[in-house]
Simulated assay, not measured.
Amino acid sequence: MSEGGEKARLVAWSHELRRVHARLRQALAVTRDTSDPRDLLLFCHGFCSALDGHHRGEDRTLFPAIAAAHPQLQSTLRKLEQDHSMIGHLISGLQAAVDRAATPGELQRHLQGVAAIMESHFRYEERMLLTVLEGLALDASPEEVLGPL
């Protein structure tokens, strides 16, 4: 591969992360904006699955690759993994509320909590990792690294 082609591939990880975050933000917005309880049920399940898949991919593939290339980012990666755990807990609460057919108001409160933490997490992750991702050599599919979005 030419040097220009290799550089384009390396930079793609930062673009992929931004793209996935944008799609998750959009999915959350669609979920929050629905008023039909059946649609809310469907959108909540889809959004929760997508967000969980994204974080699993990061924890399993992306963060170990970053840690190997940039050991000085260990504490940042631990904080991001802790965020993933906290978001997972919030998602579990949302899924439990969906499963027991909670009121739309209760579901919206769960979604607001997820949205607040998710947005804070995404901003921190982008601030701390986008530059690193521009030079990260990682031979894996975007779906494996960032989830099936």
Rank of each mutant, 00 (worst) to 15 (best):
P64G: 05
C48L: 07
V30N: 06
Q112F: 05
P71M: 05
G147T: 07
L130R: 02
E3G: 00
H121R: 01
E119S: 13
G5E: 15
L129M: 06
Q108W: 12
L42G: 05
G135S: 11
R127K: 12
A69K: 11
T76E: 12
L17V: 09
L51M: 08
L40N: 03
L17M: 13
R18C: 12
F122D: 07
S92C: 04
R60D: 12
G4H: 00
V145Y: 01
G5A: 15
G57K: 05
V114H: 02
L17T: 03
R25E: 15
F63Q: 01
G105L: 15
D83I: 03
F63Y: 07
R56H: 14
H15S: 10
L10S: 08
G4V: 00
S85W: 12
G113I: 00
Q74R: 14
D99V: 08
E106A: 15
H70C: 14
E3I: 00
M86C: 03
M128Y: 03
S49D: 13
V30P: 01
Q112W: 03
L51T: 02
P37K: 00
A101T: 10
G105Y: 11
E6F: 05
G113M: 01
I91G: 06
P104K: 06
M118P: 01
V145G: 03
L136M: 12
H54D: 08
L94H: 05
F122N: 02
P71F: 05
I87E: 07
L73N: 08
Q112H: 10
L40Q: 13
E126L: 01
A115H: 06
L80T: 11
R38L: 14
L111E: 11
S141W: 02
T131D: 11
E58M: 08
R78G: 12
R78V: 15
H54V: 06
V98S: 11
H84C: 11
F43H: 14
E143D: 14
G113K: 03
L136A: 04
E125H: 04
L24D: 06
I91Y: 00
Q112M: 02
L90S: 10
L80W: 08
L62H: 04
A22V: 02
A116G: 08
R18Q: 13
A12R: 12
A137S: 10
L138E: 07
L133S: 11
L40A: 13
R127G: 06
L94T: 09
E144C: 05
Y124K: 13
L136P: 10
S92H: 07
V20E: 03
L77R: 07
A140Q: 15
H54F: 02
S35Y: 09
L40T: 09
S2F: 02
A68Q: 15
L94S: 03
A65W: 10
S92F: 05
A137R: 15
E6H: 06
L90R: 07
Q112Y: 04
G88N: 03
D99P: 08
D33M: 12
R19P: 04
F63T: 01
K79E: 15
G105C: 10
H89M: 14
D39H: 06
G57N: 09
R32C: 09
T31A: 09
L62W: 07
L51W: 02
S35D: 14
D83R: 09
T103K: 11
E58Y: 02
D52P: 00
G4P: 00
L80H: 09
V20F: 07
F47K: 04
R109L: 14
R38H: 12
L73S: 13
F43K: 10
A68T: 15
L138P: 07
F122A: 01
